[in-house]
Design a protein around this nucleic acid. Structure first.
Lengths: 132, 132, 132, 132
DNA sequence: GTGGTCTAGACCACA
DNA sequence: GTGGTCTAGACCACT
């Protein structure tokens, strides 16, 4: 479930944060659902509990989860506004990389083609969503 | 001209790399044009010369500039040939980031809009200028 | 183990890169094996840690090792896939240097002899060892 | 005649030394023939006279040419031994790069193929040599 | 403890 | 003047 890349330059706790964010955004982890405990998750993916701790704290700071002393950590009620900040970042990053791509001679049409490819990948995983 | 954020988590030299890349891509810095010397730029933005070197070195590795001992650093000519491998890499990277963007809820239309923005950055400075 | 020539015109960090490359190619350093830490190696061969870093960084750029913050530096797994581009580059480089060699009057037979030598270096440590 | 690559990391004076050595070895410049004067050559290839000076001095040190005050520089009588040192270097370099190539999975046969390619290139330029 | 960034200041090679 | 290497020593982020 949690595939971590220890070789990546991105710190493990950040990878965890990203993974968990994805799960929350995609509502695999639903509102107020309990997250695995620090220790159990640490054991499951063989990672230092401190690292999990750090990831959870980060998620709490960013408002994705909340912790209750003695009970555990839970998914926050989703407030769609939280993502605006992330979307802004992503758009900036996109603009940068799109410029690089165009500079390299990749045409707008080719990029649009890639968007279509990406769409099938992303939508493929939850295509029947609207039917539930 | 070079606004650096020393507080940022992104290292100074990386910020420099990004800034300079932009300038090269947008052709503010033209082919074979000389970049500011390591020392002069260091003084201008009050940063250690080693940091500038590191940025220049990185840009050289990425093929954006070339440096000649005793003469200076210059913008690489864009060689439209040979770049097929680079283009392949870029397409893979694009596919990844486009998926992320779609996943975040950015629509294909929005991305196409961003492509148009990027196009004006890359081509805007030289071609259809006279029509405005 | 690491004999450096501080008087050489070749920079220390480059000598290090070459030495380490050899060790990796000859599989003295095996896949995913941890390299000596920047600081320990620096102390061992009495060279500034920054110089070791530079060497490690270069090796990382060339794909021979990978470094993880807080954990250490490790030998990259040889990924037989994906390397087609690298192989293309190498073939071009080979063609260039082989031409130079022939031009200098080194005969094809002599080069083939060198290939055999190189083969024992690369494969010698593990395979037909038991037959001697 | 003298094609210099200002973008190369190899210093211009070294490129000059190599070029002139080639011309001497291939006897395009014959024994005791006069070399172009520092100034005229500098002008011809638009390079700083100091750089030419340095190249000539280097060639004199290596025994390829000799200079006579007030008259100019001349090609030394060829002593074939001079190249042994260079050939040794080349063989070492070859051994290194051949190991890298094998490590990357390029087979000995493929390299031999490349040798043949290189041979046609090198011999092609002066194939009628033996007939003169 | 690990790698990574940065500074200040020195020295070298090259044009 | 240019780029390039190296040192000594500091601080940060991550495990």
């Amino acid at each position: 479930m949690f595939e971590l890349d220890v070789r990546s330059r991105k710190p493990i706790y950040e990878q965890l944060v990203d993974k968990l964010k994805e799960l929350i955004i995609s509502e695999v982890l639903k509102q107020d659902e309990q997250l695995p405990s620090v220790r159990s998750l640490a054991q499951q993916i063989t990672v230092n509990p401190n690292t999990i701790q750090k990831a959870y704290r980060e998620l709490e700071n960013q408002g994705y989860i909340y912790s209750v002393k003695g009970r555990g950590s839970f998914v926050s009620p989703t407030s769609p506004k939280q993502n605006t900040e992330k979307i802004m970042k992503m758009k900036n990053e996109l603009l940068k990389i799109l410029s690089e791509a165009l500079y390299l001679g990749i045409s707008a049409d080719e990029i649009i083609q890639l968007i279509k490819e990406a769409e099938t990948t992303v939508r493929g995983g939850n295509e029947n969503d609207s039917l539930t």
